[in-house]
Nucleic acid binder design. Sequence first.
DNA 1: CTGAAAGCGCTTACAG
DNA 2: CTGAAAGCGCTTACAG
Lengths: 347, 347
Amino acid sequence: MPSEGRPVRLKDVADHAGVSLATASRMLSDADYKGRAALRDRVLAAAAELGYRPNLHARALASSTSTSVGLVVHDVRDSYFAMIAGGVIEVAEAHDLLVTMVCTYRDPRQELNYLRLLSTQRPRAIVLAGSSFSDRAHAAAMMEQLAAYQAAGGAIVSVTRGRKIGHLVKIGNVEAARRLAHRLVDLGHTSFGVISGPAKLTSVSDRLRGFRLGLEDRGVRLAPGSIVRVDLSRDGGARGARLLLDRPDRPDRPTCVFGVADVVAVGAMAWIRSAGLRVPADVSVAGFGGTPLAFDTVPVLTTVELPLERIGRVAMELALLPGNEPRHTVEIDGAVQMRDSTAPPRP
Amino acid sequence: MPSEGRPVRLKDVADHAGVSLATASRMLSDADYKGRAALRDRVLAAAAELGYRPNLHARALASSTSTSVGLVVHDVRDSYFAMIAGGVIEVAEAHDLLVTMVCTYRDPRQELNYLRLLSTQRPRAIVLAGSSFSDRAHAAAMMEQLAAYQAAGGAIVSVTRGRKIGHLVKIGNVEAARRLAHRLVDLGHTSFGVISGPAKLTSVSDRLRGFRLGLEDRGVRLAPGSIVRVDLSRDGGARGARLLLDRPDRPDRPTCVFGVADVVAVGAMAWIRSAGLRVPADVSVAGFGGTPLAFDTVPVLTTVELPLERIGRVAMELALLPGNEPRHTVEIDGAVQMRDSTAPPRP
DNA sequence: CTGAAAGCGCTTACAG
DNA sequence: CTGAAAGCGCTTACAG
């Protein structure tokens, strides 16, 4: 029986079943409550017949309990975040929780802004999936918001390093990038170019630092000017490749290019191809992330594979933990996957 | 001043500013309300000082107005939906609306289930971004839910054809697939294979029908057995390619394979390559969708490009329209992009 | 086990 | 322009 006009309320169900509001409420939403079987049946039947859907707002207000979860990402269109979001949503749905997602487009002000907007919804948990920013003032402002949110009983999970509050899914950016560097040097490369992203992103600076450490472990140094900073996008990657490689006059052209994110490496490969160079014969290319698009490039991209969906699932599972104390940290490691886009440099 | 324990309420702000609850409410949430400037300043200052965040649930309950939007997709991990979601979220954020996303994984029962869960949140609009199912009973059940939701004042937007309620973003699947077929026949192909998806998805059957019509326009028929049905995934595409092409005994191997979604075509290309065949020299491959991954295959994938982000933006804009009547329909056309994965068949 | 009543944090007619 | 009060749709001590 589709309702006409206003939705049916619990009171309608109670009246229809001939019980009190309180009893209807208990029968419908308290799983532990048994009650008289006859009443229970009547209430359930009435709810079904009237097509009753509880009003989440009323429920949240009365019980100060919420069934929503906030998810903050930099950009859903980026499959890095789409995969993580998939993991978060999968676990949330299994618990009848609703995920509200917000995109910051890597703008600290938007991050703060949307965090505030999100907390307005009093979600039971907030998952911050995007890398944090290395900006003290911003970190302090975030901290203030998050502390207030947590004090009110909300759970916090960050997929990043260095957040001083809430649970952590810690991605081994530094170590994985370091291992990748080892493998690339072992291939024979000594001249590298790095297409990096915005310096303010801690994940970017971690990957860059790890990569540099890895090279140093093997006695290789990054030449000055061999790091370029671009947007973390396909176009950014193409631009980065051009900046690094489009200088026929200089003999020190890198033989291997590392893009700090797959999408950047893929953009770089596209530019390299369009410039008439071959991967890996002329230039080796490596990425970072393990997004699906790394599988379908030709040659298949050498990258650090992160289990993105699992990261999302783990984050959501941490969010489900009762209470914020003790703080939990789950470390997730990346796996270096040497594939076809890298090869020894030409002699 | 971070709150300790419970969040600050409007009453706290009102007390702190020395005004009534009503005045504080008006100053803070009614943009048209002027009031005495002195009071206004006191209220704003108090809110800022105390770090007041309104409780959305209370606000929604009292004003029966909501700032959330429900988004139903089949799978965020699929960049087709990630791009659409990006468009929806972009427009929603510009209006301070929060998007709650739910994934059905192409299961009609989950679709219904999550639609119900979503309507529990009384969102101001629901955007159904995934293709509908060609299942009468399920369509009727959806219709009942949606009608009740709409009767209660909610806006509905579907990105599909044939929904009998709400606004529509209508994607020209039939016509675009038809034009693609024309172009492929014009290339010289007469023997086609189609890697199709679940028959229950209307977008899939539309693309298939359009493709078949296009072939018939040119006097070409699909041989029996030249359509295989797989999951809409990379693995599905690989399996489909194997089913169609891995029969050296039969001479009627298609010279051109059409995958009804990019992800399927990409999977097919991967299998073809692994089987030692070349694209397009041995087999041409075409996809449908215009997802980012179509750009980075080598050879670059011939496909029907859909403006996915724009579809999301348009859907959200329709969702913002006041009232559900009159119903609006925005038709979005796909653009056939002939790229490197298709070529004339070998003589 | 059940019901009457208070209360969750807001908004909004209704008076003044 | 401002305030006191009712009400949004639930949950949950508190009695019985």
